[in-house]
Design a protein around this nucleic acid. Structure first.
Lengths: 156, 156
DNA sequence: CATATTATAATGGGATATCATGGGTTTTTA
DNA sequence: TAAAAACCCATGATATCCCATTATAATATG
């Protein structure tokens, strides 16, 4: 699992340390790290090769000629397999830096199966929004059974 | 299961002993310990990795842009996988210390599938509040099904 | 029944390893 | 042949490990 949040520096060579716990998780899954443009937000998403395949399969299930599928394929085309240096750093590709608005600081946000890399300002927006939702609506009412089923009863 | 209450000290390195019975439970489930910010209270919640995986699986079943998904992602971002030292202690991350108002003492409160870590003062507030509700409204009505689902219907 | 004995749990502190970061040097490759 | 990427080593801060000590609970003993 990718969990927790950390704020790391991006140096002049566009190098950034991937949090040790994330690297450990990749090692455990014996997977390289894949970075690509988030399909939902102005940030980079990082994940395992397996998880990436899931995304690709999901796109395949859409109408191949639809605009939606075309857009998703474009996003996926900008996916990169990363190489670590001896200190656990990667060089963030320029297209991803530009897309996510990253400059000198990166916020790593673990969300389970994958993680996001935000610019500090975009991260703050996202965080504040989530906090606001939590205040207004309260915690999501999920019933977690042993069979991993999810039932949303918020409208009942 | 995580049960019973205990008061342990937090030392200058932010180390705290996790109650032996909780550790035994984790060992039985052969699961690491995950700590995260409670979505409901000003306290830390601890649980098994298995339990956390259920929440992660739940995210995939929601619309990625939904409010519920945003809150659950934030929950993952504020979660940490803990490592025990030889004495059964963990180091509480600074963000969790700040969030829950912990300083030098921690109150552990087992609630079954997970447990809470309170500052003594917050614990007292919560305890008093619960006692008051119990007096005013009487015991909550619970439906315990065979499938181990728990649904609180006290507000319905 | 009170007290001694033992085992287990919780705590304290210092040595060691790891992590995030900086900067230099060599090797690609465009 | 420049620019970029890969490789190398150095460093301060922090987490991890290890061993010693104190406290609490569990059992036994006079």
């Amino acid at each position: 699992m990718f969990l927790s949040t950390s704020h790391n520096k991006i140096d002049l060579k566009c190098r950034v340390s991937i949090p040790a716990s994330y690297r450990l998780n990749l090692e455990k899954e014996s997977s390289p790290l894949i970075l690509f443009k988030s399909l939902q937000f102005k940030c980079i998403e990082g994940t395992t090769a397996n998880r990436m395949q899931q995304y690709i399969d999901a796109i395949d299930q859409l109408n191949a000629l639809s605009d939606e599928a075309a857009v998703l394929r474009m996003m996926m085309a900008d996916a990169f397999e990363m190489k670590f240096d001896s200190g656990g750093r990667v060089i963030i590709p320029e297209t991803l830096m530009d897309f996510s608005g990253l400059t000198d600081k990166a916020v790593f946000m673990g969300i389970g199966e994958s993680f996001y890399i935000w610019s500090p300002s975009e991260y703050q927006i996202q965080y504040d929004y989530s906090q606001q939702i939590l205040k207004e609506k309260g915690p999501p009412k999920l019933i977690l059974s042993k069979s991993n089923l999810l039932k949303d009863v918020s409208n009942e």
